[in-house]
Simulated assay, not measured.
Amino acid sequence: MPSSALHVARTGLEAQDARMRVIANNLANVATTGFKRDRANFATLAYQDARVAGQQSSNETTYATGLNLGTGVGVQSTSRIETQGSLNATGNSLDLALDGDGYFQVQLPGGQLGYTRAGNFTRSADGQLVTTQGFAVLPQIAIPEGATSIAIAEDGTVSVSIAGEAEATQVGQITIASFANPAGLQAAADNFMLETGASGPAQIGIAGENGRGNIRQGMLEGSNVNIVQELVDMIETQRAYEINSKMISAVDEMLRNANQTL
Rank of each mutant, 00 (worst) to 15 (best):
I81R: 05
A89M: 11
G205H: 04
L94S: 09
G156C: 07
T175W: 03
I143P: 01
A166F: 08
I176A: 09
I143T: 02
L96H: 13
G184W: 11
T131N: 11
A136D: 07
Q112F: 14
I152M: 03
L129A: 04
T196N: 10
L129P: 00
S161R: 13
N92K: 14
V75N: 00
E167V: 07
N88V: 15
D101K: 13
G72V: 12
S161E: 13
S159P: 03
I152H: 01
P139K: 04
G102W: 03
S77P: 00
V137T: 01
G114Y: 04
G91I: 05
Q173V: 06
E195D: 04
I150L: 06
P109L: 10
P182C: 10
G205A: 06
T116D: 05
G72L: 13
Q105S: 09
G184H: 10
A187M: 09
A118P: 04
T131Q: 06
A97Q: 08
S93N: 06
N120D: 15
S178I: 10
G114D: 12
Q203A: 09
A177I: 11
A188C: 07
F179W: 05
F135I: 06
V75M: 12
S178E: 00
E145V: 08
R80C: 03
G74V: 14
I206P: 01
R123V: 08
G200Y: 02
T122C: 07
A168R: 11
L96T: 08
Q203E: 07
T90V: 02
V130E: 10
A187L: 15
G172K: 07
T116H: 14
G197V: 08
A202E: 04
S124E: 04
Q128I: 06
S199E: 02
F104D: 01
A189Y: 03
D126W: 11
G200A: 11
I174T: 01
Y115D: 11
S86V: 15
A89W: 03
G127H: 04
I204Y: 00
V130T: 10
Y115Q: 06
L94E: 09
A187W: 03
T83S: 15
M193W: 13
I162R: 12
Y115K: 11
F135W: 11
G74E: 15
V171H: 00
G156Y: 03
A198C: 06
Q170T: 15
G156V: 08
I152L: 05
Y103W: 07
Q107F: 06
D190L: 14
S77G: 01
Q170K: 12
T78F: 07
Q173P: 07
N88Y: 10
N181H: 07
Q112K: 11
F179C: 07
G127Y: 01
T132S: 06
P144G: 02
G156E: 03
G110S: 14
V158S: 05
E154Y: 12
G156M: 02
G127L: 08
Q170E: 14
Q128H: 12
T78I: 15
V130K: 03
G100Y: 11
Q203D: 08
I174H: 00
G102M: 05
S199R: 02
S161Y: 01
A188G: 11
Q76T: 13
S161P: 01
G72I: 12
A189Q: 15
G184S: 09
G102E: 02
L98Q: 00
S79Q: 15
S93T: 10
D155F: 04
N181C: 06
D155K: 05
R117W: 08
E82P: 02
Q173C: 10
